[in-house]
Design a protein around this nucleic acid. Structure first.
Lengths: 157, 157
DNA sequence: TTACTTTCTCAAGTAAACTTGAGATCAAGA
DNA sequence: TCTTGATCTCAAGTTTACTTGAGAAAGTAA
């Protein structure tokens, strides 16, 4: 029986209630292509049930420090129109998990360095290696854009 | 011998070179009170050497996901005018380290849940408990402001 | 059909953390 | 002293991730 792959459709209000997201946020995600709602003849957004999971994923990923841009990249792996299968989610989960591990690892390295660094009161750029470009590249959101430098001078005190 | 506690003063350009920060960022931090530069008679900012460490701290803390507001709170513990002692830095380091541990712990909990959650394809708000308010409160930077809800409904698929 | 709630679009506002640009001064070396 | 290069201030612009408001349709219950 060719039942629609989506089943019952949900209004934006229902989705908002179920995800805890503001209606305006959901609209924003739709505009940004993070979800893609269908429209009624009257132009109102209608969501398929799996969009709730999609939105939940966005919420979780954001809490982990991913930007919407990064999340968008992850979600590219999921089908938009049909309900994603377990396998779809598993695939996306692997990449996600890997990035999460990397993020945790970075914080742990930072913490370990901190122990032998701020703790001792040195905090010298040269000595501490807290300025590892790799870690720096992993920045989240806003923050100072570092000036390109040939060499970092020594800080004596 | 009453040698000035600060020793040689540095221009904003020197500080920029040594920290890797943009001059404009340092000015901004000065305006925001995260460092407090002295001024020459001509009005130019002059920094004491320990300001470099102060700025380094800001940089590191930002990479860990702290906002300038949070960093400002941490730095309140440090003396502005005299060079902080090792003990000053140790004190601030303890609180910092604690917050860092909390942040790592949160990510690890998130990861563990993810393994039994996205991995299995459920991602249900009710079941996953990924929506723990505690973790949510630990948010960094921007993101969706969640609507206040009495109860989160069940997501079936 | 009337009334009322929900949703729509579009423009503008918000917050954080800076950057950019203009026009003016300061400071140091030749 | 002259001439650069470094700084200064102040206003405005930038990015991300939304929120808010206005005015107008779409749905829905009675």
């Amino acid at each position: 029986m060719p039942v629609s792959a989506s089943g019952k459709l949900l209004t934006i209000g229902e989705v908002a209630r179920r995800t805890g997201l503001a209606v305006s946020a959901i609209r924003y995600y739709d505009d940004e292509g993070l979800v893609s709602a269908r429209r009624t003849s009257g132009g109102r957004r209608m969501f398929i049930r799996s969009d709730i999971r999609r939105l939940s994923f966005i919420l979780i990923a954001q809490q982990m420090g991913f930007s919407l841009e990064e999340i968008r990249a992850q979600l590219k792996e999921l089908p938009l129109e049909r309900t994603p299968t377990k396998r779809d989610w598993e695939r996306i989960s692997r990449g996600f998990r890997a990035q999460l591990d990397a993020r945790i690892g970075m914080l742990e390295r930072l913490r370990d360095r901190l122990d032998g660094c701020i703790g001792c009161g040195c905090l010298s750029l040269q000595t501490c290696k807290l300025y590892n470009p790799d870690d720096r590249a992993a920045r989240t959101g806003t923050g100072p854009r570092l000036v390109v430098q040939q060499s970092i001078e020594r800080v004596e005190d």
